[in-house]
Write a protein that binds this DNA or RNA. Structure first.
Lengths: 140, 140
DNA sequence: CAGAATCCACCAGGATACTG
DNA sequence: CAGTATCCTGGTGGATTCTG
């Protein structure tokens, strides 16, 4: 049984974290950047289903919230690199925890999510795509 | 500097976790239930801004995803109690991590969030409300 | 006290096309 | 390669009202 270490307030910390982390691709983006995937085109490739526009929007929000930094190289063709700020890095354990929990409970989650009538097919099969991609990377 | 322990896939675990945790009040609800706040009326009181309907909807989703269990006592007035499932409990470290990160970076987050033009006043002041409530609880 | 039924506003996010 | 401008729609979550 899980035992909480410190008694906490109702929602305040959660509220702040959610405010900053809410956005379909934000956790994935932070994760990607932490894995040295720092250029927009790379992220775009690794996040099938995400649009340029949406990625830009969310990256700008992350930047505005002080989680990532953007470096623009004034050259042709343009080059942009994102990196995590100190605050951004401090969030990584949380991201990792989410990632690991999702992986650890994959079978259960896939079942309940797949049964969920609200989830559309795209979302349902998203994980399969990611897994396939991971497999491809191993082969390649 | 934060060092990742295990190299991870791009998004799969994150994807699953987000699917299950997305919803304005879900983390707070899980947190509340873990703190033995298990009756709808209590949650309603502790989550100012949340509606009965929305709470019901999100609780039903959490239930459908196997994170919480609902026990209905067939009596008058009706009594309902929620509790975490095993899977739900396994998620608590993640919730705690989010909560603690938000608390730890409160000043920074409040600043950037308050400056964010997209955030409405309600959201901006939410944390103040929670803090006030926490203070009140200490006094009471 | 718990909850279902409506109705609705808003915005996140996707599609598309265009510029430097 | 990177970014922006429009346009559009689906869903989330809020307000209100009504039942057991």
């Amino acid at each position: 049984m899980y035992e909480r270490k410190t008694p906490l307030t109702i929602d305040c910390g959660l509220h702040l974290t959610r405010e900053v982390l809410s956005g379909k691709w934000k956790p994935a983006l932070l994760n990607a950047i932490s894995m040295d995937i720092k250029r927009p085109s790379e992220m775009l490739r690794l996040l099938p289903g995400a649009t340029r526009r949406v990625l830009n929007v969310q990256l700008r929000e992350l930047e505005g919230h002080g989680l990532v930094e953007k470096k623009t190289y004034p050259q042709l063709p343009p080059k942009v690199e994102y990196s995590l700020t100190e605050v951004g890095w401090s969030l990584m354990p949380v991201i990792d925890a989410m990632n690991q929990w999702g992986d650890a409970n994959r079978s259960h989650l896939e079942t309940v999510i797949t049964q969920d009538p609200k989830i559309n097919e795209t979302s349902k099969s998203a994980c399969k795509i990611y897994r396939q991609m991971a497999a491809d990377r191993k082969i390649g």
